[in-house]
Simulated assay, not measured.
Amino acid sequence: MMPNAKASRLVILVGMFLVLAVINGAIWQKERHLALGEIVYLELAPVDPRSLMQGDYMSLNFAITSRIQTTLDQESNSPNARNGNVVVRLDDQYIAHFQRLDDGSPIGDQERRLQYRLRNGYVRFATNAFFFQEGHAERYQSARYGQFRINDQGAPLLVALYDSELKSLGSLVR
């Protein structure tokens, strides 16, 4: 075998190893986030009824996003703001209630920081859709809350949807 062929194989093997290591690292981080993250519920807000159920997923919007958007519009020093944190207060059921945009000041015992993103002019938390098994759309029509797991940085991961009594309707399809 020629020396160039050996070097090429080595480069390919090292590249494949690095790709697999990065992918497995990302999977491990998400699994850890889901296992150890603190539970927070965000109330769902109405979405366009025509897009509520589209095949195997439900479009999501959260009530808190309108408060964030209004506050951003009133207080924004930068019209190009893209991402940020909001401070929410958790009630006894761990339902998040808008307090203020995060300015870096200390937060109270019942307060948490949640990361949000601005995409195409809309405030988003983790996702704007909930995927479910085909044929199970009726199960999720009574959804009123999204359950998230947040990590120490306030990054939310959507776990499941819940009804108005905080009873689980089902988890994300994986």
Rank of each mutant, 00 (worst) to 15 (best):
A155E: 06
D102T: 06
L166W: 11
D152S: 10
P46R: 14
R89E: 12
I39C: 01
H97T: 13
A137L: 06
Y140N: 12
R174W: 10
I150P: 00
L169A: 12
R119V: 12
P3F: 12
R124V: 11
M2K: 15
Q69H: 07
L13V: 06
P106R: 13
Y41K: 08
N77I: 04
F148E: 00
Q141W: 07
G15D: 12
L166H: 07
T127C: 06
V123E: 10
D102G: 06
D103M: 07
A45S: 12
A126D: 15
L101P: 03
V86A: 01
L157D: 09
L13Y: 13
Y57K: 10
N80Q: 15
S105H: 08
N77A: 08
V87N: 01
A126T: 06
S164W: 07
F125V: 02
N83D: 12
V11S: 11
A45L: 04
G146P: 03
A129F: 13
F132N: 03
A21P: 09
L20N: 15
V123G: 11
N83G: 02
Q115K: 13
N120R: 14
K30I: 14
F62D: 03
N128K: 11
D56E: 13
S8R: 10
P79H: 11
Q29T: 05
L18N: 12
L101W: 02
L18S: 14
R50N: 12
